[in-house]
Design a protein around this nucleic acid. Sequence first.
RNA 1: GGAGCUGUGGUGUAGUGGUUAACAUAUUGCCCUGUCAAGGCAAAGAUCGCGGGUUCGAAACCCGUCAGCUCCGCCA
Length: 598
Amino acid sequence: MLKTHTCGELRPEHAGQSVTLAGWVFRRRDQGGVIFIDLRDRWGIVQVVVNQENAPDAHKAADDARSEYVLMVKGVVRLRPEGTVNDELETGAVEVGVEHIEILNESKVPPFYLNQDVEIEERVRMKYRYLDLRRPKMQRNMIMRHKVVKFIRDYLDERGFLEIETPILFKTTPEGARDFLVPSRLNPGTFYALPQSPQQLKQLLMVGGYERYFQIARCFRDEDLRGDRQPEFTQLDMEMSFVQRDDVMALIEGLMIAVTEQVAGKTPKYKPFPRITYTEALEKYGSDKPDLRYDLAAVDISDIAARSSFIVFQQNAEAGKPIKVMRAPGYAAKMSGTEMRKVMGELETMARGEGAKGLAYLAIGDTLESEVKGPAAKYFSVDQKAELFERVGAEPGDILLFVSDVREVVYNVVDKLRRHLAGVLNLADPEEVAFGWVIDFPMFYWNEDEKRWDPSQHMFTMPLPEDVALLDTDPGKARGSQYDLACNGYEVAGGSIRIHDRALQEKIFPLIGQTLEHARDQFGHMLEAFEYGVPPHGGLASGIDRLVMVLLAEPNIREVIAFPKTQTGSDIMANCPTPAEPRQLEEAHIRVVPVPEK
RNA sequence: GGAGCUGUGGUGUAGUGGUUAACAUAUUGCCCUGUCAAGGCAAAGAUCGCGGGUUCGAAACCCGUCAGCUCCGCCA
């Protein structure tokens, strides 16, 4: 080893020891006769001091050194002189008095600051990702990610789970996301698909008798990217036999609490995790993955609004369109009348963007009885206002926002306004972590384009026992055994109890527009396997990238992935994807069709 | 497929029709033996993403295009 100690570990108890360090020049302070270098490695930063009189050769090397030079430093650890202790550094009580410096490698001037917390344009960071990764924040993120994964492995191992690898080259699935395809050279004209998740394989492992399986699995989906979505990502994939819904939920809840507390050093806002139904989530928060760090729930006031003198509300109530109120606590008190009109105009634009026709509001003054302003105020009688305020828990200084339309639009507007208001009212503490289960999802949602039901999770999800009969009579009402885990407005996990009965499975296919023959074609191996003694089983998958992102309060999934893709799915460091060589195409039996001109 | 935002020395920003394109920082040189975002002095560094147009004149206005980001569609 070229180092005896790490830069980050030196403490007063090391004083007097001769050490050899190796790392990068983080900062250099040249005082003439004495040069200070903050030397950085993965474990931290320590100050090394070079004195011209004591170590002339080392001083010459320190004089030549520049930012990001790689140095090997020999010297003696000593307590810093009184008054020069640096409380900002973990190693700030000590320094290394240098006897020898060897420049292991020089560095060009880095294209951006590694030693300052300045926002750098994303494409520059990505082009020089290997430098970006040197920044302390990125190293912290990668270390946290490692610890989370390690903790999960140990936790599940201790509970009897086996980590089993499943193929990356597998079969295309017509369901769900678009597949990445891989041509088979040995079988001209045929293709593997990269797994969207090991869903089928883990179920087959249950058939295989493993009972408790997990995998830190890479998954691939050829869909457009988002701030929380990359085309390749990592899942904790797990499956258990002989379990019911609560067993899986309890295991994962225990795991998530332990990870949050023992790895991330935070405490979940709610223990145990609250459970809300899918319907309740949408009615209150407009989302099936609500941010539970703050309340801001929408309240249905259709009955009151129907009695108001506002024609639109009367008509909507008549047509069965809900009228909901969102209470922005204290928002009116923060603004002048002019500001309010401007801000409400912006909110209305936001609501229109989600399909609403408008956004009525009402601002409450210093008391609930006085100074009620805003366009919606005049439509409600004094008694109706009192009833309204009581219903939504209004307080002086609040603004009440009225949303009314078909349910889907109301949900979208509520979700959008919630997230926005939480931001402007500072309701979402970035350091807080609020998990919550969402359960009782519908089995299917209606696909109007294809005129069929689509599975809301996947086709192997078991209906709730009491809803099995609904498959024949009213499939849209049937609820599945699905459970999703939401955290801070992100979906961080989802799973279900699976169908283990072939007859029930075969009932699902026609509902989702698949003929039995087609199903046999695509899932014959599954159906066949299901004839050989399948244990009741269920499991869950959790997006590791997203989970780590939330635990670190990072706003973007790229911050927790070493080499992520840009929004157009490219890697601007390595410059890919690129066209294939003609020879490669020939071997793969692929012909490229030029993109047609517009 | 669509909408929006952004693109100015290495980096971060200012500059809304006429400027020597400004500032900070980084960089280079010199000075400096207790600094820690060290300091002082000096220097170098930008055809304002690219192409076209409007104009006497464009970093700025218009059109197109490319890239990055955010969002909708898409995706659990």
